[in-house]
Structure formats: structure tokens, C-alpha cells
Write a protein that binds this DNA or RNA. Structure first.
Length: 561
RNA sequence: GCCCCGCUAGCUCAGUGGAUAGAGCAUCUGUCUUCUAAACAGAGGGUCUGAGGUUCGAAUCCUCAGCGGGGCACCA
């Protein structure tokens, strides 16, 4: 049989068999989506497809008949499932023998179970968490960081060449305001209008005075630039430390200023100008796909709200100019085949603009994938430093722990706005659902240790046919689902599917364990060495999968709790 | 005004157009002399915001409405 480690999940293999059967009963042309998925009710089986109902019209037969014909025709791979046609559905029930074999494969395959080469080494850059390095990360930023990092883990697990990038805005307006604020504090002045006022700014000013030495010899502009670079370097380092506490690392911290050193925004502007996407108006340089057609269309089009400034009337470029160069950097200079950006929803208005820019530059906008996640709001209202409603990410990690923080964020779909209640998060941290899963893992480790103590010599080979109890097969069944969970989470870039799976697997594990609490003969470690060995095999398989699943969401798998 | 997201159990949320809509928490009832009770078994709890529409079939797709959140910069 094909190995479990190939990553080709049973759902996919059953789907192929189903499609083959549908062909052989006379369906031609484009294959409709047969919607093979998990059966609603375990009584009906493990997987189900409404194929009979789907095809009734095309084949002019009753759904029942078609279902029966498919069931009679289908060649189920590896005898993995029993097939039954019910009410126009084709139901599949994984067989005990197949589940037993799966356990053996997963136990020996370890944490590679579910891994695939589906990505064929595709070079994917994921850019996430890139806040202006002008202040500490808060709990809203944490969501994007955890989301982006987990996507990377999923992509790596499925055969993609992943690069994690943080885009450092070190020369934009905010960066300059930040630098000017530190500069002002160094000279005993208040930060300028719209500047940064936090205590950390004064602290940075003190550090700069100490570390940068005598700046007065330099021209003011040069000195201020030095201070800005210094302050931003410190903030970047702090951000690096903050995300590291969440088990997140970056491969590249890419400075915006580097783009200009490499002449990329300049090149992009040149190219867009040549192709007619740029126009001067009111002393500024504008980008707008419609501009080339504006002549004769009047003021309405000329002042189109769709346009964006690339170079301000004062000659300074906007972030958009940098982003044009950034596109070239990633797709043309660094040859990424796909770029995934993780943004908070307040940037959604920029999505179309950036995609239009990519197209205008001659790049395929479909290779630019922008994932938006909704905001994290405090229960007390919008986060605001000035109003004192600001929860630093570090504080949350201090008080709740990295694992609980990651699990908390990833348990929600990116489309859901999070109303954050810090008090509630703290009181509930002791009953955080992450512990449920971690406890299952720790239990498995413990049970395996106990087995090793009680049975110093167990056979190398496990007779998995001894795994016959329903709660044992339920664990195996959950293992069978793992590859498809990985596949869906990666394809849709939806890491939140993983913690839900983790919960289901942990439940199966806890039940399996608990059977031994109620009846001694159902324990893993029993007098019978062969039986112990078989159940140990199940423990190993579950442990590997649980550990890997937790790893994909960046959560630790403790050995004891 | 326009654009995006959400509205599902008391609360927080899952839910690829398919069968009788799920989980956690909370509430209530049971289970430790344990291979770890951070666990297990069970109960109650639903007009899937509302109204139309498409479909053999809608929580899911379309239209309209309501409520909540976010955006519509020569900030990012």
C-alpha cells in the first residue's frame, strides 16, 4: 500500500476512486464536484458524497439508483473502506484493518505523517507582522504575527520553500516622526506635533545620548538621521524579542531604505511612467490605471478617488512608491513565485491598489496573495495609547503564556473580530483549551514511560490487529483525518483549522486513556506484552500527530504537566 | 455615500450547496485506592439577525433591510 507518509490522505484517494466510478457509469465531460467529505453522523460512516443526488438530473436516473451503481462499481483503494449507498449518498466507512495498518505506519513514520510535497518547492514569501518600528507591539499585532507564522509552518510542512519576512519601514513619514521625537527628547523638548510621546521615547533618547556620542559636530539633518536609525534599530530588536517569545522568527528583516539604495522604486516609477500609468497633477505624481484614458473625460476622472500619490508635491515619495519597488524586489530580484501578505483589516482598502500596481508593473497579481484578518479590539473600546487603552503583547505573554496566546488567536477564523477582555483572558488562562491538548500529549508520554518500566522487553513489532476496541479505533480514525486537515488549512491558508483538529484528536486520546481508568484491562500497560505493545503503537502514532499538529501552530507539546 | 468583515445555544466561537446544525465555557448530575481527574460519562439549552430569491436541497449562494466592527490620506 502507499505509505501514510506520502501525505496523500484517504479522503483524496477515496475521491479519486469515486470519480473513477462515476466515469465508469457513464458520466462524461467535466466532472462535477462530488463533495466528498466527512459524514455528518458516525452511524452513516466516515466519509460521504451526495454523488447520486448530484448526478440524478444529468443521468436521468433516481439518486438511489445512481448511488447503488457507484457503490457497486467503485474500486476502493487498499480496501480502506466499506461502501454503502443510502438515499443518493455514497457512504464510506473506514475498515478496521485499514485503520490498524494506518496506526502502524504513523507510529513508524513519526512526525512526517501528513507532510507532503504538494508545494513542489514553490518559493513563497510570507510577509507578516510588519508594523512601523516606532513602538512596541500590542495585542492586535500579535494576531497577525501568530497567523503569519502558522501559515509558514503549514507551507513548510507541505513542501514549499518559505521565507518569513518583516518589512521594516525605516524611512517613511512615521519613522521620521519617530526619529524627530527621540531627537526632541534628547534636547529636552517636547516631541513635534503628531510625534511619539511614550516613556520609551525618552528612554531611547537617553540611550542615544549615551551610545551615539557627540552629534553636535554633525549637521542637524545628518545627526537626526543617525538618531532615527539608532532608535529604529533598537525598536526592531525589541520587536524581534517580542515575537521570539511567541516562538516566531524571521528569515529576513528587509529595510524599506534598501529598496531605494537598490533603485527599485525608481525603476518601477520609470516603468509605470513609460506605460502611461503615471501622471503629474497638482505638483504631485499620481498612479491610476484609468489615467491613460482620462484625456477629454473631464475633471471627474482627473480627480478620481482611485488614484494614489506616488511622489508628493514636496518631492518626497510616499509608502506607495516604496511598495512599487518592493514588488519588484520580491518578484523580479528575489524571484518569489508567490508572496503572501498578512494584513489587519484596516488596510483592506489598499488591496486593490497594490494588486493593480502589480498588474501595471507586468507582474501576475494572482501571485500576490493578501490575507486580511479582522481587528482585535479591547472590550473597553478601541485600543488607544492616548486614552490609556493599550495592552502590550509582551504583557499578555507574561501573564498568560505563549502557548495560550497562540492558541487563543488561532482558535478564531481571521474573519472574526476579537473583542479582547484582558481580565477574562487572565482568569481563564488556567482553563485554556490549549491545556486540554497538551495534557493529552503529556499523558501519552507518561503512559509510554510506564510501559517501558513495566515491560523492559517488548517485541519490536506490534500486532496492530489487537487494536479492536471502539475507543482505540476512534483514535486511529482521527489520525486518518489529519492529512486532509493539513491540506485544507494550507490550501485556504487557514491555520485555525489546526487547533480544532487538535481538540478532536485530544478528545479521542483522552477517551482512549480513560477506558483504562474505568476498566483495568483496557489500560495501555497490561500484563499481556503483545497487547501492551499494540496499544503502545497507537500511543506513539497519536503522540507524533498531536505533537506535529501543535508544532504547526507553534504550541509546545510538554512531556509532563 | 461607497467598499470590506461579522451576526449560529446564556457567553466565546467552529461549520468545502447536501442527511437530524456542532465544540468550549457557564449551569445541572455522576466517576479518582488512577498507566496523570488540567480527565471521563450524561442532561438541559437553537426562528443559524430579518424578508425575498436561486436550487431536488440553503446557516452556507444572490438581492434588499437591520445591528455591530473596520476602511475610503500628498499616514502605513
Amino acid at each position: 500500500m502507499r505509505t501514510a507518509g506520502s501525505g496523500m490522505g484517504i479522503r483524496r484517494r477515496l475521491g479519486e476512486a469515486l470519480a473513477g466510478a462515476v466515469r465508469s457509469i457513464g458520466v462524461e465531460g467535466e466532472m462535477p464536484d462530488l463533495e466528498l467529505g466527512r459524514a455528518k453522523d458516525p452511524k452513516l460512516g466516515d466519509y460521504a458524497s451526495p454523488a447520486g443526488r448530484k448526478l440524478a438530473q444529468a443521468l436521468r436516473q433516481s439518486p438511489d439508483q445512481i448511488g447503488e451503481r457507484i457503490a457497486a462499481t467503485i474500486a476502493v483503494p487498499e480496501s480502506a473502506a466499506a461502501v454503502e449507498a443510502v438515499a443518493g449518498y455514497v457512504n464510506f466507512r473506514l475498515t478496521r484493518e485499514w485503520l490498524q495498518r494506518l496506526v502502524a505506519e504513523v507510529a513508524s513514520g513519526g512526525e512526517t505523517y501528513g507532510a507532503t510535497d504538494a508545494g513542489h518547492g514553490e518559493r513563497v514569501q510570507v510577509e507578516f507582522g510588519s508594523i512601523n518600528p516606532t513602538g512596541p507591539m500590542h495585542i492586535g499585532h500579535g494576531r497577525g504575527v501568530v497567523l503569519g507564522d502558522s501559515m509558514c509552518r503549514l507551507l513548510e510542512f507541505t513542501g514549499h520553500g518559505v521565507q518569513r519576512e518583516y518589512y521594516v519601514n525605516d524611512q517613511n513619514t512615521q519613522a521620521r516622526r519617530f526619529g524627530a521625537s527621540v531627537w526632541a527628547r534628547m534636547h529636552g523638548q517636547e516631541p513635534p506635533e503628531g510625534g511619539y510621546t511614550g516613556a520609551y521615547v525618552s528612554e531611547l533618547a537617553e540611550m542615544a545620548k549615551r551610545d551615539l556620542g557627540d552629534l553636535d559636530a554633525l549637521p542637524t539633518e545628518e545627526a537626526e538621521a543617525k538618531v532615527r536609525q539608532y532608535a529604529i534599530a533598537i525598536m526592531v530588536e525589541r520587536i524581534r524579542e517580542s515575537v521570539a517569545r511567541l516562538n516566531v522568527r524571521y528569515d529576513e528583516w528587509f529595510n524599506e531604505s534598501r529598496l531605494w539604495q537598490e533603485g527599485l522604486p525608481q525603476l518601477a516609477i520609470q516603468r509605470l511612467r513609460a506605460s502611461g500609468f503615471l501622471k503629474e497633477r497638482d505638483g504631485a505624481l499620481w498612479f491610476g490605471p484609468a489615467l491613460e484614458e482620462e484625456d477629454g473625460l473631464g475633471e471627474e476622472v482627473r480627480s478620481s478617488k482611485e488614484d494614489r500619490v506616488v511622489i508628493r508635491s514636496n518631492g518626497e515619495p510616499t509608502y506607495f512608491a516604496s511598495d512599487l519597488g518592493y514588488l519588484l524586489s520580491r518578484f523580479e530580484r528575489r524571484h518569489f513565485e508567490r508572496v503572501v501578505e498578512v494584513w489587519a483589516a484596516d488596510h483592506h482598502g489598499y488591496v486593490d491598489r497594490l494588486k493593480a500596481a502589480a498588474a501595471a508593473l507586468g507582474l501576475n497579481p494572482e501571485r500576490l496573495v493578501i490575507i486580511l484578518h479582522q481587528m482585535v479590539n479591547l472590550k473597553e473600546g478601541k485600543m488607544s495609547k492616548r486614552a490609556g487603552r493599550f495592552v502590550p503583547l509582551d504583557e499578555l505573554v507574561d501573564r498568560v503564556g505563549a502557548d495560550a496566546v497562540r492558541y487563543f488567536y488561532l482558535l478564531r477564523s481571521p474573519d472574526t473580530t476579537i473583542e479582547f477582555d484582558l481580565e477574562l483572558a487572565l482568569t481563564q488562562s488556567n482553563e485554556n483549551p490549549v491545556f486540554y491538548a497538551q495534557y493529552a500529549h503529556a499523558r501519552l508520554v507518561n503512559v509510554e514511560a510506564t510501559a517501558a518500566e513495566r515491560h523492559p522487553t517488548l517485541p519490536d513489532h506490534a500486532d496492530v490487529s489487537l487494536l479492536v476496541q471502539p475507543w482505540e479505533l476512534d483514535v486511529a480514525r482521527q489520525l486518518a483525518f489529519w492529512p486532509e486537515v493539513v491540506e485544507d488549512a494550507t490550501r485556504l491558508l487557514e491555520p485555525h483549522r489546526i487547533p480544532y483538529y487538535v481538540h478532536d484528536l485530544a478528545t479521542a486520546v483522552h477517551r482512549f486513556y480513560h477506558a483504562g481508568n474505568e476498566t483495568t484491562e483496557y489500560r495501555v500497560v497490561v500484563d499481556d506484552a503483545a497487547l501492551t505493545r499494540a496499544r503502545l503503537e497507537l500511543c506513539r502514532a497519536a503522540r507524533h500527530t498531536l505533537r506535529k499538529a501543535l508544532d504547526l501552530i507553534g504550541v509546545s507539546a510538554p512531556e509532563r504537566m
